[in-house]
């Protein structure tokens, strides 16, 4: 059996209802756009395997319901996430302002070293823009997070953003691995601040013992 991947990364998409989280994910996983999506209830996920620096990386991307009421359910998935996409809608000011709340949520529930990225989605709808790109950038700088404007519909920057986030996670992990290896003489396994996510470099085994 050939191993299907070298790494398994768990990513999470969060943001207000209707900002296009599912569309972004659908664009990334299926390279398609369908304007008649159904609203995500609770939590859902998609898989895509990408390649970075010759390594196969399986991305398990969790998509969450944006409605406040579901936060009790969705925050349970923060802990296992290694990367989080914060999505807002450039045509909806409130969704942008809520990014701060979402970040606070992350600080509360996610691993401290989780990699984050802000996406201003729907940037194809420039005529309805309510949040300038500069404001998005400024917010990202404020929090020291990466930022991109995307359009799931126009397939703009979606691919890029997932690659960037994955690269960040990978380099973060590689750094941690190096540290661990130098400390403990080459142990292969690394516990990513969470009990249920076990990363194994080169082992082809992912979380929960899933196998390629």
């Amino acid at each position: 059996m050939t191993k299907a991947y070298d790494y398994l990364f768990k990513l999470l998409l969060i943001g207000d209802s209707g900002v296009g989280k599912t569309c972004v994910l659908f664009r990334f996983s299926e390279d398609a756009f369908n304007s008649t999506f159904i609203s995500t209830i609770g939590i859902d996920f998609k898989i895509r395997t990408i390649e970075l620096d010759g390594k196969k990386i399986k991305l398990q991307i969790w998509d969450t319901a944006g409605q406040e009421r579901f936060r009790t359910i969705t925050t349970a998935y923060y802990r296992g996430a290694m990367g989080i996409m914060l999505v807002y809608d450039i045509t909806n000011e409130k969704s942008f302002e809520n990014i701060k709340n979402w970040i606070r949520n992350i600080e509360e529930h996610a691993a401290p070293d989780v990699q984050k990225m802000i996406l201003g989605n729907k940037c194809d709808m420039n005529d309805k823009r309510a949040v300038s790109k500069e404001r998005g950038e400024q917010l990202a700088v404020e929090y020291g997070i990466r930022f991109l404007e995307t359009s799931a519909k126009a397939s703009y920057n979606v691919e890029e953003s997932f690659y960037i986030l994955s690269r960040d996670i990978k380099s973060h992990i590689d750094k941690k691995l190096e540290q661990q290896q130098s400390n403990s003489g080459g142990r292969q396994q690394l516990n990513n601040n969470s009990n249920n996510v076990v990363l194994s470099k080169g082992g082809g085994r992912g979380a929960g013992g899933s196998r390629g």
């Binding site: 207000d16 209802s17 406040e68 909806n92 409130k94 969704s95 809520n98 309510a130």
Partner: peptide
Amino acid sequence: SRPLSSISNF
């Protein structure tokens, strides 16, 4: 006290 998220701007 239901959440009133994203009401403004709308």
